[in-house]
Design a protein around this nucleic acid. Sequence first.
DNA 1: AGCACTGATGTCAGTAACTGTCATCGACTA
DNA 2: TAGTCGATGACAGTTACTGACATCAGTGCT
Lengths: 188, 188
Amino acid sequence: MVRWEPDAAGRLRKAAVELFAERGVEATTVAAIAERAGVTERTFFRYFTDKREVLFSDQGEFASRFVIGVEEAPADASPLDAVTAGLRAGEVLFAPERREGARVRATVIAANPGLQERELWKMAGVADRMAAALRERGVAEPAATIAARAGIAVFSTAFADWIADGQARELPELVEDGLRALRSLTVA
Amino acid sequence: MVRWEPDAAGRLRKAAVELFAERGVEATTVAAIAERAGVTERTFFRYFTDKREVLFSDQGEFASRFVIGVEEAPADASPLDAVTAGLRAGEVLFAPERREGARVRATVIAANPGLQERELWKMAGVADRMAAALRERGVAEPAATIAARAGIAVFSTAFADWIADGQARELPELVEDGLRALRSLTVA
DNA sequence: AGCACTGATGTCAGTAACTGTCATCGACTA
DNA sequence: TAGTCGATGACAGTTACTGACATCAGTGCT
């Protein structure tokens, strides 16, 4: 006999996305999320530091891949090539079948400034870690930070395209487009 | 006989920075800020949408300069040159005598994740407007968005250097460094 | 002078996000 | 079988933020 249903965090995440999409973030109270997940409000805050975090706390995996991709790039790769390796390592998590879910989540975020802030903060954290990995490789500042941030800019832009209405192309291709655009910035 | 002291918003801003620096953001209630400014809490929220905004609501000027700088760049300037013009137009607001104040403000922000989020969100807004200005100039996507974001990355990095301990060089020089690093990303 | 009107502010009650503290009770362990 | 542990509930408290209405010095009009 189990005392509680397992995976309270997962149930809370699911309930939150559903309710945010149904009635909006502001109109959804933490108490309502908790109720749908079958726990109390207090338990929500044991799993997530705040209401917004429920949409982001499962993204550590993809952030780590970005960083590991940079770390494991060939030693003689240029900064931009190392960043590119990071993006390649991360984008594999976004297979075609995940696109629809990503779209729902992005729609929710697009409708709420607070969630946009959190997303930017998370991506900035990834960029910081990538910059640190570049420094480990011997890249000097400010090149390391700028390379990392430019890489994140490319990824974010590609990701937004990927989940845009009527977009048929897949993420790796769109990231390639972005990298091309970044490279051609300095030659045009 | 004036009914109220003038410039309530300014007094609130000043009180907020002081209190945030003295005891931290979390330990400072809006009621305390309002009291030091000689108004009620309700009045605080008439001027600022939320507690964090009090540190950012006077930044519209500098954001606009960035955008206008892009708009007014020579028609034949490359995307990156137009962005560079934007940065040049914006950085003039950060004269040497402003450095100390910027340092205090940055220290406060660095100590509080919520304020970092808001800062990132504001800068993202500037990047969006710069990207729109680039599109006006005929720059296609995703180049416009990536150029704008890379430019903001350069500026933010330079700004952080500018207010770092022991930094003697001035902002324009540091922005130049960043632009050089960005340009050499694609050639190395 | 008298008077309506405006706009910045105060007052007050209410909601909801978050926090600290202690109680509960199946499951595991000695 | 007793004791401990860990996830959860219960509950009170603080504070950010909002809506509705009251106040009243100044302004312009008659």
